[in-house]
């Protein structure tokens, strides 16, 4: 049986496929600790990477979060990780990012609002932790591909009591 897609639907499927592939590639680069590549090839110059506090659920911006990196601080974070200066990531933990429920919330022409669910498993120093959350991305359309301009990870945990720390990039 063949399913006939309308032109519009086919375009949507292609877009969704490209977005998904982009997110999967990002996850793979992060899992493989190819952080400079990720930074150079997949992010905009004015990228923002944020993880809000677990006790603030209303998206307010005046609250203190867990991470709120501009491009410079994110670059710093990456260099520290790659130069083995992060004591708790030396030896490097093994991570596995599982991404699902990829959804294009809005196509704004020059950029897309994208949502996905994510579980990041982290193993290292005798521990295993899982970070469960929701990705909220702003993807700038760059030719056939994208660049991330805004990358917010809303954790679903009530606290990070079990994890203690968040030393990897989610």
């Amino acid at each position: 049986m063949t399913i006939e897609l309308s032109v519009d639907e086919a375009a949507q499927v292609r877009l969704w496929h490209r977005v998904s592939q982009f997110l999967f590639r990002e996850a793979r680069l992060l899992d493989e600790w190819r952080l400079r590549e990720w930074y150079d090839e997949m992010l905009t110059d004015d990228v923002r990477y944020a993880v809000p506090a677990t006790d603030v659920r209303d998206g307010t911006t005046d609250a203190l979060g867990l991470v709120d990196d501009d491009a410079a601080r994110l670059r710093q974070r990456i260099e520290q990780l790659l130069n083995d200066e992060v004591w708790c990531e030396n030896p490097r933990s093994r991570t596995n990012r599982m991404i699902g429920n990829v959804e294009i919330l809005a196509d704004r022409g020059t950029h897309l609002d994208v949502a996905a669910n994510v579980v990041v498993h982290r193993f290292g120093h005798g521990r295993s932790d899982a970070y469960v959350g929701k990705y909220r991305f702003e993807l700038v359309v760059a030719g056939e591909s994208f660049r991330v301009r805004r990358r917010v990870v809303v954790l679903d945990h009530e606290t990070l009591y079990e994890h203690g720390k968040l030393s990897i990039i989610l």
């Binding site: 506090a53 677990t54 609250a63 009591y161």
Partner: peptide, 11 residues
């Protein structure tokens, strides 16, 4: 106190 607590822990 600024809203947004860092709730974590240690073993």
């Amino acid at each position: 106190v600024i809203r947004g607590a860092q709730l974590h822990g240690a073993q």
